[in-house]
Design a protein around this nucleic acid. Structure first.
Lengths: 212, 212, 212, 212
DNA sequence: TATGAATGAGAGTTCATTCAT
DNA sequence: TATGAATGAACTCTCATTCAT
């Protein structure tokens, strides 16, 4: 039993090492420019070991994206339990997402570019086979992407008259989306979050209807 | 003399063919996915010929970016000759840039990713070694990037009291920047320019001070 | 004692499971295409366990071949106790071998290819190190390969005037040999054994001398 | 012109070197066991060069098989122009094929094994894109495999009453087929052709009906 | 004895770049 | 200037084997 646990722990440790190395290098050099050999060298493990945990180089990317989607969905569900103004929900959700992306800045451009060339179909996203969080899988059958979540919040705001209605919700969503990306690669000498906050003000001022 | 001209013309013709093929393929398949062989096959020229005009695959990318910068600078100079409100200049400049990018959507993400990983340092941007446009090089000593141009317009607007001053000009510039990118890869079923126009409204409404 | 027996039984059980899985998969997918992991997964045992019973992947192949040789030799001894015509013995032996190969079709091509490239020298054939059947090893000091057995039968037939003598026995043996192989990979829509039987008729008609 | 010819000659030379090295090594070590690196090292060319001539490792195999099929078909057409007894045609065709295979013994087992696991569909067989023998391609629209050729001869013999009719033609064809293979890997100390000739007698005696 | 995570050599393949013509 | 065959480093991925538990 203890034996099994020890091995199991080591296994989880290895996986964590691989994921962390991948995150580090993807962030530093980008996905394309990072080789599996790089990752495993950083993780101080043999190349072959990578394939004990992930089916391919693309697979680890899917895994990373999936993790973020799960976190985002959790937050969204939580926010929806409390009833607030759409503006507040939007603000909270936006800042929460910003925090996640702050630590994994490489994912968004990857996600975009992958989506663009069809390499990473949304259906392809799957959690790790049998590891951690399996029990959660049932309670959360349908994952929503960023787009779905933000679209929903904005449409609610438009329906309630909080937000302007002359601009399609999808367009507004896309603006939020692009803000993340731009901030990820910003060369301005302020923090990612400060950057994000300024833009949040700008967009909010652009979409909230002032009652006089 | 005529001979030289003929050769000269052929030279320019080949270069043009290469550049056009590159633009076409980069736009269709992306930079990474396009091989030098692809480009030269499309241009109906031998592979080796590529290296008579460009030092490397990356070099043609620099060239393309440089071209855009030149066009943008020309437009900016022209706009500045006419005196207008900053808001108008900003709007014109933005839409002009959008049009260029509409036809060369691949450049922006490349530019960003290159900028990010230091592969294409801003200093690295140089016109073609000794070819065409050499004479122009002198008359246009300092090229401004998108960032410089938009920064300058926005700062002018802030100075004149047209634009809000509580948000750094660089941040606003970055928002415009990101709008281009997002629109490039948008999956929303409207045209690039329509997409851009909606967002322009949104940002303008967010930054223009309303006098009451 | 009982403990030892239990362990012993488990040991034998595991080995049997491994061998059976190997036979199944080799037959289905071929030797090259079957991985050690495949075999052990089919046998529902850990990968490492394989190496408690066999020294290498090639080793299990040798083992399998050895088993067949043992069975064939047993049958041959039995047939020789009864005195018959060479033609009858040949026929019986041939059909017996066919039946074994029918269930283990993968062995023959492997045997041939191994023989060809010297990977499995005839001398290399050895029973399992120390396991099962060790006691038998002594009582059966010299194993005969297919070739030896068939050669012997045919030479006997030639000596007695039953078979034609203008063709070397080895050649005839080789024909029988090749019939097995061809039938293994036949694309003709009849059963392995039916296929074999037709060819048996043909060869027999070619070698039996008709007395008039 | 001379320039073009020189380069063209060099190209053909390289291809020949690659094909010959492949034939040599496939014969010596088998297809699976021969690496692309082996071939190119033997040919004294860079690894990458291989892929200028063949699309994949499997591709060169197809090429080799195709060559043999072409030669065999040519011979068959020629033989059919002269009218003979089926037995004679069969004999000639068999010996001709034997000679080809004698020099490329590795092909048959490869062909068989490939056919078996579906890796080398018959339709997949194609000549080299634009090289040698292109003009012939038109005059020989439909290639017949060994099987088709032998089947046809044997059926003709059965129809004319020359050959026994109680054994399906396909079975007889398969016997000839297997003779090639067995002789390829024979360990008997006689030549390939001598080996083949003995077996030819045996099969012929088995299938030709004796008139009394 | 049983385990399976770890290993790394080695496979096939790609492609930016060179250079002799 | 134009060419394209030649190149080989670098990539992703496989799998027989080892070894600590």
């Amino acid at each position: 039993m203890a034996e099994i646990n020890r091995r199991e722990r080591k296994k989880i440790f290895s996986q964590k090492a691989i994921v962390e190395s991948a995150v580090k290098l993807f962030t530093q050099k980008g996905y394309q420019e990072t080789t599996v050999a790089d990752i495993m060298s950083e993780a101080d493990l043999g190349i072959g070991t990578f394939y004990n945990y992930f089916q391919s180089k693309e697979d680890i990317l899917k895994h990373l994206l999936f993790q973020i989607i799960v976190e985002t969905n959790d937050k969204f569900e939580e926010l929806q339990k409390e009833s607030r103004l759409a503006g507040e929900t939007l603000r909270e959700m936006f800042l929460f997402t910003a925090e996640i992306l702050d630590s994994k800045r490489f994912v968004l451009p990857l996600f975009l570019s992958a989506a663009h060339k069809g390499g990473l179909k949304e259906q392809g996203l799957e959690p790790l086979k049998d590891m951690s969080a399996t029990h959660k899988a049932d309670s959360m059958p349908k994952k929503m992407t960023f787009k779905h979540i933000f679209d929903q919040i904005i449409k609610a705001g438009q329906a309630s008259g909080e937000f302007r209605q002359d601009i399609p919700a999808e367009i507004i969503t896309e603006m939020f989306h692009s803000v993340f990306q731009a901030a990820s690669f910003s060369s301005i000498q302020i923090s990612f979050l400060a950057n994000i906050r300024y833009k949040l003000i700008l967009i909010m001022d652009g979409i909230i209807l002032k009652k006089e």
